[in-house]
Design a protein around this nucleic acid. Structure first.
Lengths: 198, 198
DNA sequence: GGATAATGTGAACACCGTACACATGCGCGG
DNA sequence: CCGCGCATGTGTACGGTGTTCACATTATCC
């Protein structure tokens, strides 16, 4: 069993896994370096061999969360059946992405919060999927398929991004309006987005 | 000068003022009870005579920040000139509200963040203006003036709210897309919102 | 195999939120 | 006018936090 080797093997990965668990169950605010290192079975100071500060591990789990969200969007997009005209299909794929974005936030509010937490530390970007690019790609697809006029193409990304991001924040936040029907709101906003860019 | 009276007079108000200053300059995360009480010239424990916990202070400044935002929206709405048809005027007032929402967030990002911070403590609502109601009132105004069809009235609030709230979050957050022209983005989103509900 | 870099330990510091017993002074009933 | 009660502020303490630094241990490479 090797009992307890002095060196952990892959402490960085283990700390990030533990951090993701904490975020999933208790939110990003509950993330404590001492808890993380204790969960992994290591001394608090050991974390500093892999992360310069707590903010850096927060930034790391934020990036992982964003990638998680982007993967959900891609999966939803690729799950729409390849039926109908290219135009209708491009719209269906776009709307699937929008639904996935908000549904991910509703299903995993703490992860979504962590994904867009404002952290003082900035990490260099990775090669992994990013929500923004998934969205713009879907809009390009619609433009090519003739589902939206070329004149709207420029403003479409920010309009779509703002709509789904705003709804996600509203539905996961404390300032949720008196409306209750979550799925209805999502459908209304996604439809509204398409109407405003088409 | 009365030197230092044992009793402060209005500690609660003084603490909240100090808290708002901290939020304005360093964000809600930097808010510390010890700093607040030190700034006011009082012992840390004194704060607990007025707030059950730090979270309650945060909830209070969050509410104040939301009221601040709502006041900006009202001011912008009431500043639009009373010219043109009632229909055009209702649209102008609506768009002014949208612009004010996002511009407030861009101008005071830390206050905006504080306004919608997810805090575990919930405060009972006050009589003060709330952004949601300002927005729905503007939409009702447009409906009555015939600026938007009655069929769209039901979904209009969530669509508008999601759009401006999302854009505000995007422009103030770390995950800002490569686009730079802030005013252009605001105009595009506000116009897009009106297009999608009209 | 021995130097050297990488990694984990232990103790310490400063700070934080919070609790509790105590000091102080305002305001109201006599 | 007095004095008592209650609201308010003080002092001290506890447990928890991020972070640092000297030191111990192990992996790696010449």
């Amino acid at each position: 069993m090797a009992a307890k080797p002095y060196h952990h093997g892959d402490l960085e990965r283990a700390l990030l896994d533990a951090a993701i668990d904490v975020v999933r169950s208790d939110g990003i605010a509950a993330l404590s370096l001492r808890d993380l290192t204790k969960a992994v079975g290591v001394t608090p100071s050991a974390a500093y061999r892999h992360f310069p500060s707590r903010d850096h591990v927060i930034a790391a789990v934020a990036m992982l969360s964003r990638e998680d969200l982007a993967r959900h969007m891609l999966a939803a997009r690729d799950a729409v059946p390849a039926r109908g005209s290219a135009q209708r299909r491009s719209v269906a794929r776009f709307e699937a992405i929008g639904h996935a974005y908000v549904e991910f936030a509703v299903a995993h509010p703490t992860v979504f919060e962590a994904a867009f937490t404002a952290c003082p530390v900035q990490l260099e970007r990775t090669e992994d999927p990013r929500a923004w690019e998934v969205l713009t790609a879907a809009i390009d697809e619609m433009t090519l398929a003739g589902a939206i006029p070329a004149a709207r193409r420029q403003d479409a990304p920010i309009i779509a991004w703002a709509g789904v991001h705003g709804l996600a924040n509203i539905l996961t936040g404390a300032a949720v309006p008196p409306g209750i029907d979550v799925d209805g709101q999502i459908a209304a906003v996604v439809k509204g987005i398409y109407r405003s860019i088409s």
